[in-house]
Computed example of a mutant assay.
Amino acid sequence: MLRALFARNPLTVILFTLLVALAVGLGIAITAQERALRQGSARAADRFDLIVAAPGSQTDLLFSAVYLRPTAVELLSGPVAHRVLSDPDAAFAAPLALGDSVAGSPLSAPPAHSSTT
């Protein structure tokens, strides 16, 4: 039956075989890339034993701290940040963002004035 099909439509059989081979190859490549991405992400996060942050999205916090993706994450209050940074049990503590606020509004540096003379 296969010989008759191949003899009658050789181009169709060859194209179908190539299509199946391409699909299998793409499936293997995507699986390998996914595994590599998962392992790389896990290795990047292994360096962090504990991440302390203000309430908010855990995903945004993870991307901000581990992968250094810029995100709008709230800052810890001053006393909490001081307690975390001065904890004697911490081998290493590093703030990722520094800032201050007044009445819930963030403070920023004044704009630089340029003179055009």
Rank of each mutant, 00 (worst) to 15 (best):
55 P>D: 12
16 F>A: 14
31 T>I: 11
100 D>E: 15
116 T>W: 12
99 G>P: 04
108 S>Q: 07
64 S>A: 09
40 G>I: 09
94 A>V: 03
39 Q>G: 11
83 R>A: 15
66 V>Y: 00
48 F>G: 01
38 R>L: 15
14 I>V: 15
55 P>A: 08
64 S>L: 03
78 G>E: 11
23 A>R: 11
97 A>K: 12
48 F>P: 02
34 E>K: 11
45 A>Y: 03
79 P>T: 00
107 L>W: 04
61 L>E: 05
94 A>M: 09
60 D>E: 07
35 R>W: 13
94 A>I: 01
12 T>V: 13
77 S>N: 12
65 A>E: 01
56 G>D: 08
2 L>N: 09
117 T>Q: 14
47 R>T: 03
101 S>T: 08
21 A>S: 10
38 R>S: 11
38 R>F: 14
81 A>I: 01
106 P>F: 06
95 P>T: 00
29 A>K: 10
87 D>V: 01
14 I>Q: 13
112 A>F: 10
38 R>H: 14
12 T>D: 08
13 V>Q: 03
106 P>H: 07
50 L>S: 02
9 N>F: 12
44 A>N: 07
66 V>Q: 00
20 V>D: 03
105 S>A: 14
32 A>M: 07
37 L>V: 15
65 A>G: 01
42 A>P: 03
80 V>E: 08
54 A>S: 14
95 P>Y: 02
37 L>F: 13
49 D>V: 03
107 L>D: 03
109 A>G: 06
26 L>C: 05
75 L>E: 06
15 L>G: 11
61 L>I: 14
20 V>C: 11
15 L>W: 08
12 T>F: 08
62 L>W: 05
10 P>C: 07
70 P>V: 06
19 L>H: 02
97 A>V: 03
95 P>Q: 03
88 P>G: 04
115 S>M: 12
87 D>N: 12
1 M>A: 14
37 L>Q: 15
45 A>N: 02
15 L>I: 10
72 A>L: 13
54 A>T: 05
96 L>M: 09
113 H>A: 13
47 R>K: 10
25 G>Q: 14
55 P>T: 07
92 F>K: 01
82 H>N: 06
51 I>A: 00
111 P>N: 06
42 A>R: 13
99 G>Q: 02
34 E>S: 09
24 V>A: 14
114 S>A: 15
5 L>M: 06
94 A>G: 05
96 L>P: 01
43 R>G: 11
21 A>K: 05
43 R>P: 04
86 S>G: 03
49 D>H: 02
54 A>P: 05
13 V>C: 10
5 L>P: 01
62 L>T: 07
29 A>V: 09
49 D>I: 00
105 S>N: 09
8 R>Q: 12
21 A>L: 13
18 L>T: 06
39 Q>C: 08
40 G>L: 04
80 V>K: 06
79 P>Q: 03
93 A>K: 01
46 D>H: 07
